[in-house]
Write a protein that binds this DNA or RNA. Structure first.
Lengths: 361, 361
DNA sequence: CTCTGGCACTCGATTGTACCGACTGCCAAG
DNA sequence: CTTGGCAGTCGGTACAATCGAGTGCCAGAG
């Protein structure tokens, strides 16, 4: 990729003006508008000749001859990388965030759900909250609860505040005391170990108990794995306002319904070290009309969680970035202070295994 | 309401033809089309004069002079009440449903989530699943788990398979053994009682324990109350295809995001003894372009849950009704057989209080 | 009295034309 | 290198003509 970063200052200023105006108006912007913009002191004719250069280099396109220019994905990319100011939240929004995190209470799912609502409300884009993976979280409590005649529910409470559950179907009906025994053994073995690495060492005397314990252990493994990650989507209805083609709206919404896709999208973007993915940069074709802004949610240094925003490529990047970062940070703080610093967290932290290595290509 | 039900057979047949065709094509239908329809053996001129009568009586409207007719909400209402055949699922769909309920497994939230996906897929409308209220469900297990220094999580497992949780903030840091004692007292008191009516009778000796127990008890009460009901929405993206005005899509999606509104909408409709609400019949203005189809989900006779479909007023009512009923029934069966018939359910059932009286006007 | 075919009429949708205006590209002069 | 000027392009709008689906009405047949 040769010609990145090297745009002479005037071209850069013109590009900036085009992007800014297009973000505001959604209309192709012509040379006169650019000439009128602040910081530009050349005539429209000069701008025109610069714009053909910018178009040749792929930063702008004309929807048709005799129309203004529109930024390409590359144009937006240059804008966010080189031009956009860090961006700050307005005082009103800042206030909203701090009030939210002062007032919010309750258990974790509710917190995440409402956080995604907050983020969407701040930006008027759709938002996504991806909580940190539970794989490394210490187990605080495990329990087997009998439900149906041959159905028991495995309930695990983790140090990060999450409650995970999985139904287990038994091959035969078992008396309550077997369940209780198995439950106790699980609790003893799992307590304070990370969810991803619970090991039952020695068998008990009772084969029935051992069988149940084995089933439960494999269920715990399932819970730790990635396919169990959940996302919280906020304000999807705002997407309807962001695009004019109803088919685009439909496709984007449909993609948002596929949790796994969204999870890997966010992780991919974060892992590539990006905080913004524009148009086709992430490889997800149905979202090529969208831009994605992500910010990590890190609890105690270890990350894994993220908050994201999904909007049209002509989104307000500075504002979206600022909002995502602030909310991501605050959410991380909140998760840490509320859930993660319990009295027995220390021991859990010592036994935590090597830094989580996610096996994504 | 005088003139309901009394339409001479020919008018009824014409109305039926108009509704059927309009549901299929979304285009205003003219007298010629009706004349060509099966079962109509009069000329288009006759139909025209009948149609002016139907329009005068409010069953049809013309978008403009010299256009065909479109059914009004009243027209649809007559159609579903008097004309539509019961409606059956196609064999392919029937097969999908039975395969789904054979294969599906896992815990309840997952089941509900996937059920709403199924219903949406069957009908191509957006679907809603409202699980039965937990108020009357017996408690199987209650537990207090310490998380942060002053935060404990109350986790309740109910006989219907639900796991409810609530974070409790303590006024002071407490030693683990106080929590354990409180947890044990709660478990003893709540076990097998309905969630809505757990009572701790006598105080223990320890004031610290009693204080925690009191907090937990009020938290249990919160969990039982209606505001805690959750819905599972399936396939909202399908709404984007159902309306052409993007603003309508936005408004409907925004309404679907408000869980409480949807819950009361469904309950209202069910309580009025309806299974279909068309246009403005439910009082929810933003949904006046929609029709809602609901079917109860009853577990062991007591109902409270529901499945619903949300689509344009020109939805395929017979098919939607059939799908909702079948899925609602199957879901009820599934909930009963998997979760509700456990060994200790008997005692719970005996202590169940008077039939739940929901206080909705 | 009801039904029907015929007929005049209405009105949205489509097509064609003209025009305006917002652009651009190019060029010659500063 | 920059600039103002100018011709040219093309989408959007306004307007008229046309088309056609569909209506309402009516006179005549059954």
């Amino acid at each position: 990729m040769p010609d990145t970063q090297d745009l002479d200052p005037r071209k850069a200023a013109i590009l900036e003006a085009v992007v800014s105006e297009y973000i505001g108006t959604a209309q192709p912007v012509g040379s006169h508008h650019v000439a009128r913009a602040a910081g530009i002191n050349v005539s429209s004719a000069t701008i025109r000749s610069e714009m053909v250069a910018l178009e040749r280099e792929g930063y702008l396109v004309q929807p048709h001859t005799s129309a203004g220019r529109v930024p390409t994905d590359k144009g937006y990319r240059f804008f966010v990388d080189q031009l956009a100011e860090p961006g700050v939240l307005g005082p009103a929004q800042r206030h909203k965030v701090s009030r939210f995190f002062e007032q919010v209470h309750g258990e974790m799912e509710e917190l995440l759900e409402r956080t995604s609502g907050l983020l969407s409300e701040l930006t008027s884009y759709a938002s996504v909250v991806l909580p940190p993976s539970h794989e490394a979280a210490a187990v605080r409590s495990v329990q087997l609860v009998g439900l149906g005649p041959r159905v028991v529910l495995l309930v695990a409470v983790l140090a990060d505040g999450a409650v995970e559950k999985q139904a287990i179907e038994l091959p035969e009906e078992l008396p309550d005391d077997v369940l209780a025994a198995a439950s106790a053994r699980l609790q003893a073995a799992a307590q304070a170990h990370p969810l991803g690495s619970v090991q039952i060492t020695e068998p008990s005397g009772d084969t029935q108990v051992d069988r149940v314990v084995a089933l439960a252990q494999s269920a715990l493994g399932d819970l730790a794995c990635e396919a169990h990650d959940r996302i919280f989507v906020g304000g999807p209805s705002r997407l309807a306002g962001a695009f004019d083609a109803v088919e685009t709206v439909r496709a984007v919404l449909a993609t948002l319904e596929q949790q796994l896709v969204v999870v890997s999208l966010l992780r991919d973007v974060l892992e590539r070290g990006l905080s913004v993915a524009i148009g086709a940069e992430h490889g997800y074709e149905p979202l090529s009309a969208c831009a994605v802004v992500v910010a990590p949610v890190s609890v105690d240094g270890r990350s894994g969680g993220a908050v994201g925003l999904l909007g049209p490529t002509r989104m307000n990047y500075p504002q979206a970035l600022a909002a995502a970062r602030v909310v991501g940070e605050q959410l991380g703080d909140r998760l840490r202070t509320t859930f993660d610093a319990g009295p027995s967290a220390r021991s859990a932290r010592e036994t935590r295994p090597r830094r989580r290595a996610r096996g994504r290509r």
